[in-house]
Nucleic acid binder design. Structure first.
Lengths: 151, 151
DNA sequence: CCATATCACGACTCTGATGTCCTGTTATGC
DNA sequence: GCATAACAGGACATCAGAGTCGTGATATGG
């Protein structure tokens, strides 16, 4: 896994919110349900996104979560850096703690190229792009619920 | 982490063995010591590599591990597939279980390109290449032992 | 101002990967 | 053959990430 489960849920939730009409908050439990994630865990992930300034939350009746204005232009790298920290960028393929250009593992140069590709891939795509893709109907944000063929 | 710790240790051990003069077996504990890995865990990793046909082991006095003949031409993808299974290839960035071309997540096409790059990177480099690199003295196979500055 | 609906947050549990240990098997050399 | 040196392999321990729960805070609507 290149990114943590928490990051995956975070990205899914953000895309989902980006597909919703702005203005009215969406319930944590509705997001969880739509994505097939356990409600308590989704709640925790959403809290993290609020702390990271990507979401706004309102409590009480008619409360819930909305994308902050401007957050739809955040790219995936920003989201992953927020939830997983700088791991994605730094990590050495062989696990060396000190794998820099001067003190490199034998895969360093090759792996550096791949990391750049990953960086570009994540950094070049915004929540808005992904929301549009989902809205086109050609892509899925979550696995289908099981039991589809069961009746 | 794109590959497991076990895979990282496996690759390190294989490269290390590829740098050793063939013929005489190398002790599990010597490999562990040279790479800064705990001896029992390294022993377990080496056993896996024997089962996977990459190493030969001999027991008893003057026993230890040697690279099987031909194994130096194994590439990193083969090693990772052996120790981690097909995870690296398949995995969806967003964690969907069924993310194929027809039932794709919105990152599928972009991520497919990155996976191809990773595949090429791992598949294009053999243990021999890496052993040569280490033998050149320009690269490290393990972190320096701590306490270097302590006396 | 009270009941209710919702998020906030810390504490707890669970699980799989990592790491350790012990006993058994096999080879060597005297 | 017996003592010793090494791997084999399963059982056990530890830890971090994933997931759950309960209590508190806050907003709404009557």
């Amino acid at each position: 896994m290149i990114i943590s489960r928490t990051s995956q849920y975070a990205i899914q939730a953000l895309i989902y919110l980006a597909t919703q009409p702005g203005g009215r908050p969406v319930l944590s439990r509705d997001i969880a349900h739509n994505l097939g994630v356990s409600p308590p865990y989704m709640a925790k992930v959403l809290q993290g996104l609020c702390r990271g300034q990507l979401l706004d939350s309102t409590r009480g009746r008619r409360g819930g979560f909305v994308l902050r204005s401007g957050a739809e232009h955040a790219n995936l790298l920003e989201v992953v850096l927020l939830t997983d920290g700088p791991r994605v960028d730094r990590e050495c393929l062989l696990g060396l703690k000190a794998c820099q250009d001067e003190t490199a593992c034998p895969m360093h140069l090759n792996w550096k190229v791949v990391k750049k590709d990953i960086h570009a891939c994540l950094g070049g795509i915004t929540l808005r792009h992904l929301a549009k893709a989902v809205q086109s109907g050609q892509y899925r944000l979550a696995d289908l619920p099981q039991g589809l063929a069961s009746h």
